[in-house]
Design a protein around this nucleic acid. Structure first.
Lengths: 142, 142
DNA sequence: TTGTTGTAGTTAACGCGTTAATTACATGAG
DNA sequence: CTCATGTAATTAACGCGTTAACTACAACAA
């Protein structure tokens, strides 16, 4: 049967849950004038160093058109550098730049505090359980 | 500690889970040229009849600026009607129109099938558990 | 009545999601 | 080599999220 009230609707619940969690991170990102997606892209590059655009989009969960815009913004602020792949003029290689690493390093401690706070308030056990359920939902529907 | 891999990151997991679920509903909405948010607004109006804009925005989980745009679109297609509240010239009352009800009725069976399919594949028990966890996460963080 | 404060909606500006179309380059058949 | 096909990335178009500014109206005090 259909969810009677919107609170028990799965799409709604997922939307609100994400909103609630992101509300904790948003001020941190806004303070450094970085969007959530730009932050995800930077993190992937920070961990991987140099990555092809397609793989980067995939790992950061961003669509190609969005990635193009994000790259422009990040490149403009010298957070990353953009180069064509040698041997294939279509591919683009993105690399994190010093300013990008600096930003990552600057925000990581704050990020850690927020994560810990959420985990502490929500409970480690429940968080793991929730992540498991989400993981299998994703696996089952995708 | 920070989530090592993005799959165990709560914001990411919530994002992907919502994406996975909405992917099931998107074709249905697209086929009738309605966006997800327009659909939510219509559903609220369908259940409530006439609602003030502020309450509508709240119940449909849409921000006021978005609601303004959605109202324009839905009014243009005669799905809803818009009137000023008598006694308070600021307030706006939205009401579902026949064409809007028709759309709701046309899509509901399909919606039911999708919900049932998700529930069956994922498991009723797990779905309830997931909704409980999400609900308390929302309550705890908001 | 007038001026202040508060509230409901709207508008504006910017970025991302989504889909479709387009460009630039690579690859393989002939 | 040339042409067709395929692929990576970009661009375009439209709608929503988000924040801030602004308009219209209400409420209330002086």
């Amino acid at each position: 049967m259909l969810p009677e009230n919107t609170r028990r609707s799965l799409p709604m619940a997922l939307l609100h849950a994400r909103e609630a969690v992101m509300a904790r991170f948003r001020p941190m990102l806004a303070a450094h004038d970085v969007t959530e997606q730009q932050w995800r892209v930077l993190r992937v590059l920070s961990e991987a160093g140099s990555v092809e655009a397609t793989e980067l989009a995939d790992r950061a969960s961003v669509l190609p058109p969005s990635l193009t815009r994000i790259i422009k913004a990040l490149e403009g602020r010298k957070f990353i550098t953009r180069n064509k792949a040698e041997g294939d003029g279509r591919r683009v290689i993105l690399t994190i730049a010093p300013a990008g690493s600096t930003l990552i390093d600057a925000l990581s401690p704050e990020r850690l505090v927020i994560y810990r706070d959420i985990e502490q308030r929500y409970g480690h056990e429940r968080l793991e359980q929730l992540l498991d359920l989400l993981e299998s939902l994703i696996a089952g529907e995708s």
